[in-house]
């Protein structure tokens, strides 16, 4: 028997494989395809204080080995999540992590305070890295001072595990990571999408309604992996790594680079069973390479 358990702050995940926010709905969308109880955790779709319609269509452009999205945090608001969605999904034997967003700090705080009252939710992911909203979002995460300010404010409002999701669209991601660590984050998750764009040469028009959008998929994997490794060497808090993970080998690489757990995002769109396949693949890797505890692989890259 291999030991797949990993710890992120006070939380113990049954395995390191979680689904990334914005790619897994509220889990229910995947219930036909897998037993959701098998997952290490689910980072559910980003929440805001009020209902948000998101950006206009078109919101997606396929790109080589990846895609751009410009969804813009479409969601029905935190109250709808707590009162209507969460009661439907809380029975699953996996960690449910809300992803918290806001245009202004006061909104972030209000969303957080509401989630702080939900007893069985053990952590939140503070999203200061969404590239697709006009106000707030990534603006907080690309500047060290504002990243610290919002993290400090949320730290005061939240009693349980606080995970801060970092933007890769920065000069030095380790500065932001160190900043939010100092401001009270219990863990960081990285990376969110890279700002990119796509043009239709025939019509000379941008493909996305917002012109720019967030790039995800295996196209970003080497950059994401590098950033995880840099952050691992810069902070003491655990890292939840992501960026183009398509299979178990990718997941192992992110753990070797320093991730305590990983998130699978865009791959869910192509293979809705990919999370389960990654868990199985990790087990096979451990048996083949005589790894008894998956936690022994965290940051175990040999230089």
């Amino acid at each position: 028997m291999v030991d797949l358990k990993v710890k992120v702050d006070k939380l113990e995940f049954k395995n390191p494989v979680t689904a990334a926010s914005g790619t897994f709905g509220f889990g229910e969308e995947f219930a036909d395809f897998m037993d959701l109880n098998d997952l290490g955790g689910i980072f559910v779709k980003g929440l805001t204080l009020h209902n948000r319609e998101g950006n206009d269509y078109p919101r997606m452009a396929e790109t080589p080995a990846g895609m751009l999205n410009a969804v813009g945090l479409q969601n029905k608001g935190v109250d709808y999540f707590i009162n209507t969605i969460y009661p439907r999904i809380k029975h699953w034997d996996t960690e449910i992590f809300p992803n918290v967003n806001g245009s202004i700090i006061e909104d972030y705080i209000e969303v957080t305070e509401k989630l702080n009252e939900v007893e069985s939710i053990n952590a939140i992911e503070l999203n200061i890295s969404c590239p697709n909203v006009k106000e707030g979002g990534m603006a907080f995460g690309v500047n060290c001072a504002s990243a610290i300010t919002v993290t400090e404010a949320i730290r005061k409002a939240y009693d349980k595990t606080l995970i801060v999701k970092l933007s890769p669209n920065v000069t030095d991601i380790t500065e932001i990571a160190k900043g939010v660590e100092g401001a009270g984050a219990d863990a960081v998750s990285l990376v969110n999408t890279f700002l990119g764009m796509a043009i239709d040469a025939k019509t000379r028009k941008p493909i996305l309604s917002t012109i720019t959008g967030g790039l995800s998929g295996p196209a970003i994997k080497p950059i994401a992996l590098r950033m995880v490794w840099q952050v691992y060497n810069a902070v003491k808090i655990p890292i939840i790594g992501m960026g183009g993970i398509m299979n178990a080998t990718d997941a192992i690489e992110f753990m070797l680079a320093g991730s305590s757990a990983i998130q699978i995002g865009t791959a869910n769109f192509i293979d809705p069973q990919v999370c389960i396949k990654v868990i199985d693949g990790i087990k096979e890797y451990m048996l083949e390479h005589r790894v008894e505890k998956i936690s022994d692989l965290i940051g175990a890259m040999e230089v």
């Binding site: 969308e29 479409q74 769109f269």
Partner: peptide, 15 residues
């Protein structure tokens, strides 16, 4: 509409 997933997870194909 163009879509990434087809089953309500990506929210890209809205009208």
């Amino acid at each position: 509409n163009t879509m990434a997933c087809g089953f309500g997870a990506c929210l890209c194909c809205v009208t």
